[in-house]
């Protein structure tokens, strides 16, 4: 599966309180959450997020387990996140909500805000501005199965609850 989008570049250690503050966690409605995504650092983020690919540095999504962080980013229209590393809980939340998360060690050095990316989420091949090709880490195994099902809820419905093994 190849995903294309325009880059919004963020820094290292983007935490979940920056993605969606705790005061919004009493709701799970994606459209509500989308309007508040990245509120503490860029309240206008949701207006430019449609069809974007977030490129970020280390430990993206560190902090809390709030699944609304992944839901808000996806609902705002972001197609995928390519980061140098992801916090473990956020990574699972992204995949579980059908938001591709690709690990790419050198990405912030090679990519700028506004670049066009084409990301092959299985092979990990990332093409920058139709010119340069980078080899990143594709998604595989159970994470890919969940992503292909459209998220963990669909995966549970289709697979896990109808057989003995997850």
């Amino acid at each position: 599966m190849i995903i294309k989008g325009r880059v919004i570049k963020l820094g290292d250690k983007i935490d979940t309180d920056a993605i969606i503050p705790a005061k919004h966690l009493r709701y799970t409605d994606p459209q509500y959450l989308a309007q508040h995504v990245f509120e503490p650092i860029d309240p206008e983020f949701y207006k430019k997020a449609k069809n974007a690919i977030i490129v970020a540095g280390k430990a993206f999504g560190m902090g809390s387990s709030r699944e609304q962080a992944a839901i808000a980013i996806k609902a705002a229209g972001v197609k995928a996140i390519v980061a140098e590393s992801f916090a473990r809980i956020f990574y699972r939340n992204a995949i579980n909500n059908g938001l591709p998360a690709i690990v790419c060690l050198e990405i912030t050095k090679e990519v700028n805000d506004g670049d066009e990316l084409a990301v092959n989420i299985e092979t990990g091949e990332v093409i920058v501005n139709n010119a340069k090709t980078m080899k990143c880490k594709g998604i595989s195994g159970i994470a890919l199965e969940i992503l292909k099902a459209g998220g963990l809820i669909e995966y549970l419905k289709k697979i896990a609850l109808t057989r003995t093994s997850l």
């Binding site: 387990s65 709030r66 699944e67 809980i89 699972r92 579980n96 963990l152 549970l156 609850l161 997850l166």
Partner: peptide, 19 residues
């Protein structure tokens, strides 16, 4: 001991397992 998101935890409640 690991923290997880709501969906992962729901799966554990329902199946008793996780990855």
């Amino acid at each position: 001991a690991q923290g997880m998101g709501a969906s992962d935890v729901a799966a554990v409640v329902m199946t008793g397992k996780t990855w």
